[in-house]
């Protein structure tokens, strides 16, 4: 009946240990590890571990949101919808964090916290989309109806967001690395020292997001059970 909660992996402890280990490692080597001396970036390149990884975690949360929305429409199991809602919330948290870390970085390297960059506009649109998703959820009092309508909107929004973040920035000039003629990080910036920190950082933040999401789901379940009794 409850696929996510019964899932052994969600309740296992080993990946939470990996998450903690990766994040401690990231914070330690992220601040004192060796980084290449770059012209404009200087020491701000350390933000790579905290800004880019936020996007990866956000993407993962949106993917979970879309997958569980599809799952809900095929199963009509209300716990699938619960997972979708909580992963949507975590996606909002990570997108806000990614935007703030990005704005701090942009302020020092591009000279302004907000530039007319397709990637920034895409992010703003994504945040608005997920805000609209929660407004829609709160506008419908009936539980089953809410879950169904919100799932439909979430799937539609995910596809549009994917187009806006992944397809359109490729067509315009962007200040971001690897786009609009700028060299990508993996060309020469990201040397092997940085890779050693970057990949664990991605894994760590993604696992942390999943962990927080599963905790929220479990809290909501406990609330439901105590309300019933």
């Amino acid at each position: 009946m409850d696929s996510f909660y019964k899932n052994k992996i969600a309740r296992a402890w080993w990946w939470k240990i990996i998450a903690i280990f990766c994040l401690v490692y990231t914070c330690y080597y992220g601040f004192i590890g060796k980084v290449p001396a770059m012209v404009v970036l200087h020491e701000t390149i350390r933000n790579l571990y905290f800004h880019v990884t936020m996007w990866m975690a956000m993407m993962l949360m949106m993917l979970i949101n879309a997958i569980y929305s599809i799952k809900y429409l095929s199963s009509l199991n209300k716990y699938d919808d619960l997972v979708a809602e909580e992963s949507g919330k975590m996606a909002m948290v990570f997108s806000a964090a990614g935007l703030i870390t990005g704005m701090v970085w942009a302020n020092y390297t591009w000279g302004a916290p907000w530039t007319n960059d397709p990637q920034l506009n895409g992010t703003a649109a994504t945040i608005l989309m997920y805000a609209a998703y929660f407004i829609l959820r709160n506008a419908i009092p009936d539980e089953n109806k809410k879950a169904k309508i919100a799932s439909v909107y979430a799937i539609f929004a995910f596809v549009m967001m994917f187009v806006f973040i992944m397809v359109i920035p490729k067509m315009y000039n962007s200040l971001h690395p690897g786009k609009g003629g700028n060299p990508g990080f993996n060309k020469y910036d990201l040397d092997s020292n940085m890779r050693m920190v970057f990949y664990p950082a991605v894994i760590g933040w993604c696992l942390l997001g999943t962990w927080l999401m599963s905790l929220n789901v479990r809290i909501r379940r406990i609330e439901e059970i105590t309300e019933e009794n």
């Binding site: 506009n121 649109a125 989309m129 609209a132 407004i135 506008a139 909107y153 539609f156 187009v163």
Partner: peptide
Amino acid sequence: SKANNNAALLAILGFPLLFP
């Protein structure tokens, strides 16, 4: 139309989807 028929909701839900 399935959610309270609030016309303002159309703009809130629709505009972000129309950005791309």
